[in-house]
């Protein structure tokens, strides 16, 4: 029972961490709270199936073998995010963070309704990699194979990103831009390259979340990115806006809290799990308004 809980917490927390990282990367380089991130996830989900408003979903790209499919969906997610940056956020480069946030909210609504028009409003059943649902026995717990793959994939992604941010030139530039964008530009960091790079990474991470969601739930729904985006936002705030490691830690923490609440709450209170979760977050913020891992640059300077 308790080992089972550990796996649940890790898998859920891992997904939340990846989603939170997608939000924090963009916030880091351009102070944009991306309200369209949930729709990036939904778009990557719907890229799997052929556009039609019929109730029955026909797999399009989703029918491809996994070694082709996974990179392709990641590319689609990244491409969509880069396109959104070029069309919407680049013209708004000098706008205030509040205006950027409202703009991303509008972009999210536009994308959602575009999906609604193309695919219809009803959730559709999509069976992607159904064979991964079978349980594996580990000590006392029986864990779905998918959960193990998710945990492993999240670990690989986080390690890869950490390596990239520390070792590669683009990673170095991104960290510099997150620290002080104006100063980084003066020292020869090209802003368009860094920002496009951050969007591409963020879109790729959204696509990872999308694949995991579809494989877990077996459903494609226009609204499916919304809830996870909200959790990701909360994780970035709790972790301290702009701190990447803070976002990952908070994402894992919220996933664990969520799994614990699901197991620990009495049955009548279980539907309200998310309400308890959000209430808890507001409580945490009461004591640490800057978040748990606030970066040095977060305080306004006079």
């Amino acid at each position: 029972m308790s080992l089972q809980l550990v796996f649940d917490a890790l898998a859920l927390g891992g997904i939340y961490a990846v989603a939170a990282l997608g939000i924090a990367l963009i916030f880091g380089v351009m102070r944009l709270v991306n309200f369209a991130h949930g729709q990036f996830i939904a778009c990557a989900v719907f890229a799997l199936i052929v556009p039609s408003t019929d109730a029955l979903a026909v797999l399009g790209l989703g029918a491809l073998p996994a070694p082709v499919l996974v990179p392709l969906i990641l590319l689609i997610g990244a491409g969509l995010a880069v396109l959104a940056e070029a069309l919407v956020f680049r013209p708004m480069r000098n706008a205030s963070p509040v205006a950027l946030m409202v703009g991303s909210f509008a972009l999210g609504v536009a994308l959602q309704n575009l999906l609604l028009a193309l695919y219809g409003g009803r959730p559709k059943a999509v069976s992607l990699w159904a064979e991964l649902g079978q349980p594996v026995q580990i000590a006392s717990a029986s864990v779905p194979l998918l959960q193990l793959i998710v945990i492993a994939a999240v670990a690989v992604i986080l390690a890869g990103l950490a390596l990239m941010l520390r070792k590669s030139r683009l990673g170095l530039e991104m960290r510099a831009a997150a620290e002080d964008f104006t100063m980084a530009r003066m020292l020869g960091v090209r802003s368009n390259r860094v920002i496009s790079g951050a969007f591409a990474l963020s879109g790729g991470l959204a696509a990872v979340v999308a694949l995991v969601l579809v494989a877990q739930t077996g459903v494609a729904d226009v609204r499916m990115g919304g809830q996870i985006m909200l959790v990701a936002f909360i994780a970035t705030v709790v972790g301290g806006m702009g701190s990447l490691s803070g976002a990952v830690a908070a994402g894992l923490g919220i996933g664990a809290a969520s799994a614990l609440l699901q197991a620990g709450l009495p049955a009548d209170a279980r539907p309200f799990r998310d309400a308890f979760l959000y209430g808890g977050v507001i409580l945490v913020l009461l004591f640490r308004p800057q978040g748990l891992f606030a970066p040095v640059g977060a305080k306004p300077r006079v």
Partner: peptide, 17 residues
Amino acid sequence: RLSGIAASIATFAFLAM
């Protein structure tokens, strides 16, 4: 008590709650 952007996100959490 939160700063501007964080307060906006907290209001979003309030709405969802």
